Simulated assay, not measured.
Amino acid sequence: MNQRKDTYRAALQRGPEVAAPRHTKVTQLHTRYLRVTIELDPALPRDLTRWVGPHVSALLRASAAVLRPQRSTT
């Protein structure tokens, strides 16, 4: 328990790690009743492609196999 407390205190004293700043695209929407700020990370399309790409390609392969005409072996 003491070791956990010491580790926690040491982490608090170190402070946050400074990451490389990422440029974001900021879009603001102002209406009479609502104010919204949306920040988009420019790396989002790349991350999205990396996460979704394998699933989409597997789905395309499966659908191509289903739609492929069955050869009759007569």
Rank of each mutant, 00 (worst) to 15 (best):
A10R: 15
Q3S: 12
A64E: 12
T49A: 13
T27H: 06
R50N: 13
G15M: 04
L34W: 06
E39W: 00
P21E: 11
R32F: 07
L12A: 04
R50T: 13
R46S: 08
R4I: 08
L59R: 06
D41V: 02
P69V: 05
L29G: 03
T74E: 09
S57V: 12
G53V: 07
T31M: 09
R50W: 08
T73P: 00
N2K: 13
P54T: 04
P45F: 07
L29I: 13
V56N: 00
K25S: 10
S72V: 04
V26I: 14
N2P: 04
R71N: 02
S72W: 03
A10F: 06
E39I: 01
L60D: 00
Q3G: 04
S72H: 04
Q13R: 14
L40N: 09
P21M: 05
T24V: 15
R32E: 15
T74R: 04
L40P: 00
Y33I: 04
R32Q: 14
A11E: 14
Q3P: 02
R9N: 15
L48G: 08
Q28C: 03
T31N: 09
V36K: 02
A65G: 11
H30K: 09
S72Y: 05
T24K: 12
E17A: 12
T73N: 08
Q70D: 06
K5Q: 14
T7Q: 15
W51D: 12
R68Y: 00
E39S: 08
K25A: 10
A19M: 08
T27C: 07
Y8M: 13
V52T: 12
L44E: 14
E17R: 14
L48S: 10
A10H: 11
Q70F: 03
L44R: 04
R14S: 05
S63W: 03
K5L: 15
L44Q: 08
T74V: 09
